[in-house]
Every structure is written in C-alpha cells, then in structure tokens.
Design a protein around this nucleic acid. Structure first.
Ligand SMILES: NC(=O)c1ccc[n+]([C@@H]2O[C@H](COP(=O)([O-])OP(=O)(O)OC[C@H]3O[C@@H](n4cnc5c(N)ncnc54)[C@H](O)[C@@H]3O)[C@@H](O)[C@H]2O)c1
Ligand SMILES: NC(=O)c1ccc[n+]([C@@H]2O[C@H](COP(=O)([O-])OP(=O)(O)OC[C@H]3O[C@@H](n4cnc5c(N)ncnc54)[C@H](O)[C@@H]3O)[C@@H](O)[C@H]2O)c1
Lengths: 249, 249
DNA sequence: GGTTAATCGGTAATTAATTCTCTATATAGG
DNA sequence: CCTATATAGAGAATTAATTACCGATTAACC
C-alpha cells in the first residue's frame, strides 16, 4: 500500500508572518505552517467539492482518510490548521469547510496571472481550462518573439514582452508564470518583479534570485523524473507505508 | 534567504528492495532511500555537468552547498547514498561522480516513453527538447481522437490509442506519460500497464490504482499552486532558513 | 431519558530528515 | 619530508512531520 506526499517545488519568501490560524492574538511570528500540509489541501478540497456536489453535507476525517489513503489524525490536524472546525459524531459541515479551505488557499476569488513565454509549455498553460477550479485566471501571455505576438488564440492575447511592465501595473496582476527558456528566466523574473508582481510560478529550471518578499514556486520536472526513473530502474518502493486510493488533487 | 526543497509528487510501488547503495551485502529490504534525497539529485547533476563542461575536474560538498544554498553535510550524505566517493582536501572527481549520479538515477541511457493524450500538455511534453538531459526520450504519442492521429509534428508520430498495447510491447517501452483528461486517466493507465509499462508519469489530477510493482509519479500543479497562492495571500515565508542561490534543477 | 457509538481536539510518542560535531586522511605548500 | 588545512566520513543531536493515544462531546438509537 504505497503512497507518498511529496512535491517538486521550492517556495521562497521573506517575511514570516500570519499563518493559517493567524487570528486576533497578534502573536509575533506565527509558525510558518508546514508545506506538506499545504500540499495536501487541494486533494481535500477536490474531494470535498465532489461530495458536496453529490449532496452530502457533512464529512468526517475518517471518510477523507479512507478515500485518500492517509491517516485520519493527519487530516484532522491539517483541517485545524486551515481553520476548519468539526463536531463530534458528525464531522465537518461541507458548507463551511469548503469555503474555509478556499479562503485558506487564497482561492476564494481567482488571482489573475500572466504567462511569460508563449512556447510549448506557456501556451499549454494558457489554454488549460482547469485552473479556474484552483483560483487562477490566466489573462494574457507575453513573448519577445514577434511571430508569437498578437496571436489571439482561444481568446487569449499574446503581447510583446515590452508591454509587460505597463500592463502588469495597470491591471494589477500580481502573479507571473515563467515559461521562457532557462537562460532568460532570471532577467524575465526581474522584469516581473519590477512590474509589481509578487508571486512567480517558475517552470524553467532556473534558480531565481529575487528581492525579499517575492514568492517563488518552482515546478521542476527533473525532480519528479528522478524519482520515477530511479525507482523504475531499481524497482523500489517509496515508503513502507500508505496506499493510493480515492481520487484527489 | 529563503528556500525549500519540496515537491508536488507522489510515487508508489510495491516491492521494497535494493536501494542506491544496494551493494553486495544482500541485506533484506534495504531502507528505501529518502525521496528528498532523490529530488535533490537533478540539481547536483546539473551543476556538476556544467562545471565539468567548464573544465573543472574535482568538486567539494562545500562548493555545491554554496552554489545551491544547502548544508554541506546534507550533500555529502546524498552523494554517499548515490554511490559517490570523494577524497579529503580535493573532494569528488567529476569524471566519476557524474556517471555515478547518472547511473543512480537511471539516466545513463535514455528511457523510451510514450505520451498518452496529445492535447495541450501532451504535445508540449512531446515537443520539449530538454528531456534528453534527463534520461528521457519520448518516442511517440497516442490519442483516441482521430483528428489528432497521424499528425507527425516535429518528427514525432501520433498513433491511435488502439495501437498502444501492440506498439508498447513490440518496442518494449516501459514508461507512459499520462496527459489525458482526468476522467480517462484510470482506464488509460490500466491499458498502459497491460501493455507492459512499468512506470507512469501522471499529469492528470487522478489518483491511480494500479497493480503492485507499477511506479507512479504524479505531477500535481494544484499542490504547487496551493503553496503559491496561500503564501501570496498570506505573505508568508516557507521556512526560517535557507536561501536561493546558484542555478540548478 | 439513558445508552451507545462515532468523532473531534489536544497531547504524547514515533519516525523521518536535517543539521551539528568530531575524527581521520589525503593533499598542497613550505 | 613535514606541517597545516580543507575535506570526507561516521555518528550524535536536533528539528520537523507523522502517527498513536486519550478524554470530551455530540448525535443517534433504544
Ligand atoms: N515544454 C515542456 O514540456 C517543458 C517541460 C519542462 C520544463 N520546461 C521549461 O519550460 C520553459 C519553456 O519551455 P518550452 O518548451 O515552452 O520552450 P519554447 O522554446 O517552446 O518556448 C519558449 C518561449 O519563450 C519565448 N522567449 C524566449 N526568450 C524570451 C524572453 N526573454 N522573454 C520573453 N519570451 C521569451 C520564446 O519566443 C518562446 O516562445 C523552459 O525553461 C523549459 O525548460 C518545458
Ligand atoms: N494543459 C495544462 O496546462 C495542464 C495543467 C495541469 C494539468 N493538466 C492535466 O493534463 C491533462 C491533459 O490536459 P490538456 O490541457 O492537455 O487537455 P486536452 O483536452 O488539451 O488534451 C487531452 C487529450 O487527450 C485525448 N484523450 C481524451 N480521452 C482519451 C483517451 N481515453 N485515450 C487517449 N486520449 C484521450 C484528447 O483527444 C485530447 O487530445 C488533464 O488531465 C489536465 O487536468 C493540464
């Protein structure tokens, strides 16, 4: 019964501060909440939404745990950190838990984002319909290749890179999705920051060095591939525990 | 100086067995080596290759640690697990460390893979030139939409899904890259297994249930997005430690 | 209404992962 | 040839994360 909960990403910021349960008590430096917890959230939310759509109105950690192949206690702790609250015997009310998780993740209303680099990957992301469910709305793409520019494909527009700063500031877009070649990544990232963006989703392999306060999340397929190919060639289990069940993320 | 080393993926298998240092001692159930270690490997390898290309012939953990913003002892342990061996004062010989890491990851000679689902994402992966450096060679794509089939774009062919089993077995392809809609994922995954594939790189959000021994690696953008958007909306640091430097993955 | 069964919420124990400390060694410089 | 030094390597200590445990609470059932 194998399963693990790991992830190909690096997040970086500067100012520790209010966490999930950052309530009134105004405690200095709330403990930065564990990344593994955050990574499990989408799986919970996904399942909860599906069950809510089916008409259920409460759910227990036990049910979630069974469906996801995780430990119930782990889920309970996660939901607590996310601000959820349940009642004995019945569990959590979906009608309050789902919005709580969405708010916790910042998915209550979609963030607008720009894609930078309208190549293979950039266009795939630009055209992907599934981000709406994850609080993301890609509003435009940018590229420095004149041949890519202007092409309005599937209703999304591709602008010249030079317009990034202007449009970014005018539209108040705070999230940039980097899909440029790796060599250009650092420079483009700096442009994004200068344009007022506070978060970068970095699909290039580059390690970015940016001003404090900028949140960077790297998607590194090489990391994932390392696990896959190592285990494929060594025929090895990841953990002596856990199991893949249910649906999720 | 923030940085973290986490990742959006789940790996699953069945038979624990020989790990990296699975040498002669034939110990029952070698400890399955830590996923975090595996995930750091590509970063090491990348940097080592670059330095080797620059003409360096030895490297120390200290150098790597500086370039990557990690702890030197951590790197030392990782390299040990990967089968590397160094010498005091000089460090590791690139000429032996690089091949050792490649062998460890199973990247010594490329694995052939099929992409299933020639949509936005599937085609982006199919056309990506960068996988060669990571021991991966995508040789063809499959789709059940007749309009996608046959199109030989950039020299890669797209076959009807029905040919998957036949071609997979004839070519001995052991790796499948799932880029179909989530609803189709489980069925397609089973087809892949039936076609003799032992590893699946799963880009759909689905949680797959497959026969023991199949290695599954999930790429779940929602997980990564959760970290990004939560931290963006709560302006929070991931750890009170670490820093992004160097180049990597 | 009392009883039972299921669940949350908090605390403690376990386990995994990272960081620290120390020793031995091989190399470079004198 | 000898010394000073940077480094690997092994193990201990720390830290983070997961899992186990225990009481309190609430709904359902008799
Ligand atoms: N395609 C994949 O499957 C895949 C997989 C893993 C990682 N990546 C990474 O994603 C990035 C993009 O990959 P891709 O396959 O889409 O490459 P691509 O070459 O298809 O696209 C890159 C795009 O960026 C544009 N560009 C180049 N320099 C630019 C600049 N300075 N400013 C703005 N735009 C610029 C190019 O015109 C091009 O349209 C790369 O870093 C790659 O390593 C891609
Ligand atoms: N595109 C992205 O940026 C992105 C991002 C995150 C996740 N994903 C996931 O990747 C998967 C593919 O996304 P996409 O944007 O490429 O979708 P898409 O609709 O563009 O492509 C899906 C392709 O799969 C084919 N297909 C459908 N059913 C099939 C079946 N049973 N057998 C074989 N082929 C079949 C379709 O014909 C289509 O060509 C989805 O699960 C999606 O959630 C995509």
């Amino acid at each position: 019964m194998p399963e693990a909960w790991e992830s190909d990403a690096r997040t970086a910021t500067a100012r520790p501060c209010g966490a999930g349960g950052c309530d009134e008590k105004a405690e200095m430096s709330t403990p930065p909440l564990p990344a593994p917890t955050l990574r499990r959230m989408p799986a919970y939310l996904r399942l909860l939404r599906a069950w809510e759509a089916e008409g259920r109105d409460t759910v227990s950690c036990t049910h979630l745990a069974e469906a996801l192949g995780l430990d119930p206690t782990l889920i309970r702790k996660d939901l607590q950190l996310a601000g959820g609250s349940g009642r004995p015997k019945t569990g959590y009310r979906l009608a309050e838990l789902v919005p709580a998780l969405e708010a916790f993740l910042g998915w209550s209303h979609p963030s607008e984002a720009f894609v930078i680099g309208a190549g293979n990957l950039g266009l795939a992301l630009l055209h992907y319909q599934g981000f709406a469910a994850h609080g993301l709305s890609i509003v435009a793409a940018f590229d420095d290749d004149a041949r890519k520019v202007g092409t309005s494909s599937l209703g999304k527009r591709i602008f010249p890179l030079a317009k990034l700063a202007d449009l970014g500031q005018r539209m108040g877009v705070r999230l940039g999705i980097l899909c440029v070649p790796e060599a250009a990544a650092q420079a483009v990232a700096e442009t994004c920051c200068a344009a007022g963006m506070r978060g970068l989703w970095n699909f290039t392999g580059a390690r970015l060095q940016l001003p404090e306060g900028t949140v960077v999340e790297d998607i590194d397929l090489a990391q994932s591939l390392a696990l896959l190919s190592h285990r494929l060639s060594h025929r090895q289990a990841p953990h002596p525990a856990a199991s893949p069940i249910g649906t999720a993320p």
